[in-house]
Design a protein around this nucleic acid. Structure first.
Lengths: 111, 111
DNA sequence: ACAATACTGAAGTAACTACTTCACTATTGG
DNA sequence: CCAATAGTGAAGTAGTTACTTCAGTATTGT
C-alpha cells in the first residue's frame, strides 16, 4: 500500500523542496519539535508548518503532539518505498546493459 | 557534483509526476523514441516532449537525435544520486534507533 | 517531388505551490 | 493569574506547472 502512484507522487514531491529535505535531514539525526525544525530555516514558522504538513501527508514524517509541543520523527518505511522504486528501475536498466554486454562478448567470440 | 541541492530538486521534482515516472519505467526496459514514450500516455505529443525536457534537465534521462528520431535512455548515475540521498537519511535514522536499542538493553542490565 | 512521419516551439490557461502576514488558541513556568 | 511559548488557520499573492492547440520544420519512404 506504500507503492501506489499517488503515494509516490506525494513522497517525491515532498523531497523536491530543499527546505523539506533539510527538515528530513535534521530529523534523520533524531526527533525534533516544529520550532527546532524551523530554527535554521529563513522563513516564517507558518511556512515551516505548511512544509511539515506536506511531509506528513507524504508519509515520510510522523508527528505527535504532547502539550503544546509537536514532536516530529522520520518514518523509515516511507523512505524505503521511495528508495525501492528508484532502485528497481536502475537495476532493470543495469541488468539490461549486462545482458547486452554478454551478447556482444558472445558475438565477438563467433567471428 | 550530482549532489548539489538544485540538482536533487530537479530529480525529485521530475520523479514526482506519474507520467514522468511511467516514462522512466518504460526507459528502464530499454531506449525509446519520443513517440514510443508517448504511445501509452493519454496526452498530446507536445505534453510528452515537455515532460521529457523536465527529465532531461534533471539529468535522469539523456537523449540523442538521429535524423528525425530522438532516442531517449536512462542515466543510471542520476538515479543513483537520488537513491543515495534517501538511503543516507534512512540509514542515519536506523543507526540511531540501533544505538538507542543498545543503550536501553544496557541500562536494563544495570537494574 | 510529395506525402507522411517525427518531432519542435509558442502562446494561452487553469490549477497548484511556496510563501507572507495577521489574528488566534492552547499550554506552561513563575 | 498572566506573560511567554508553541503552534494553528485563513486569506492573499507571485510564481510555477501541466497541460492544450495550432502552426511550423526537418527527414524519410515511394
Amino acid at each position: 500500500m506504500l507503492h501506489d502512484p499517488a503515494q509516490l507522487d506525494l513522497m517525491f514531491q515532498a523531497l523536491a523542496d530543499p527546505a523539506r529535505r533539510s527538515m528530513v535531514e535534521r530529523l534523520s539525526r533524531g526527533p525534533a519539535s516544529v520550532s527546532q525544525l524551523a530554527e535554521p530555516l529563513a522563513m516564517s514558522l507558518s511556512a515551516v508548518v505548511q512544509h511539515l504538513n506536506v511531509l506528513e501527508a507524504s508519509g515520510l514524517v510522523r508527528t505527535e503532539k504532547l502539550g503544546r509541543v509537536r514532536t516530529c520523527r522520520i518514518e523509515p518505511q516511507a523512505l524505503r518505498a521511495a528508495e525501492h522504486w528508484i532502485n528497481e528501475r536502475r537495476l532493470a536498466w543495469e541488468r539490461r546493459l549486462d545482458r547486452l554486454g554478454d551478447f556482444l562478448d558472445e558475438t565477438k567470440d563467433e567471428t
